[in-house]
Amino acid sequence: MKHRKWIRSIYLLRNDELSREEQRALDVHLNSCESCRAVYENIQMDWVSVMGEMSAQPELSNPDLMTHNILSKIETITAAVVQEKTTGFSLWDFMFQPRTRVTLQLATLALLAVFLVEQIQVTSSLRDLEMQLHSESYKASHARVSFLPKALKSRVIVSLKGRLEKRGLPVGKLEQFSGALEIDASQLEFQDFNKQRTRLSEKWFHGRSNPWFFKGQKQIRRQP
């Protein structure tokens, strides 16, 4: 098809489908181009047939029945809504209310923030305490550990003690410090969880459940 863009316009030759400029340009083209004029005339003739085929008006078979169906459905819906209101609370609806969703989202964010702040506090307290213990003039009040809850304080101290011992540093100052923080000295037993875990696995390995065990490099089978 040679004049594709004109063909598109020819199909749009109805009241307000082409702008004035487009219509003028199409008129000029139709006056000069014989093939497009032929297409235009054919379309006009064929269009009558197309509309004749499709423009018949379908009839609604029973309008009253349709009205009745629609209204009875609506009455059912209204009755269901009223019943829901009277029976009261629906958890599902409540959960999907915008206000509830926003509240839950805010609560989640708040919990996350509290958790993060706590993590940061514990980490920085450990670092501060370590620095304080190595300085000449430390005071318990200088350490930021003082505002932590008591249970957390003792965990911080215990963990710090473990670190110091691991590095071969003296832990005397730490015991003084824990006294200043009113922490029971008996809690200062460092729990080496790694060691404990190793002991447990060894126990399991040499336990009754496993007939094989190692003695040095040698694998020995336990006698029943």
Binding site: P58, L60, M66, L71, T78
Partner: peptide, 18 residues
């Protein structure tokens, strides 16, 4: 008002169906 809706349906259902 259900009656008003009935009138709306009656008025427009033929167009809608077509």
């Amino acid at each position: 008002d259900h009656e008003a809706f009935r009138l709306l349906v009656q008025r427009h259902q033929a167009t809608a169906f077509r």
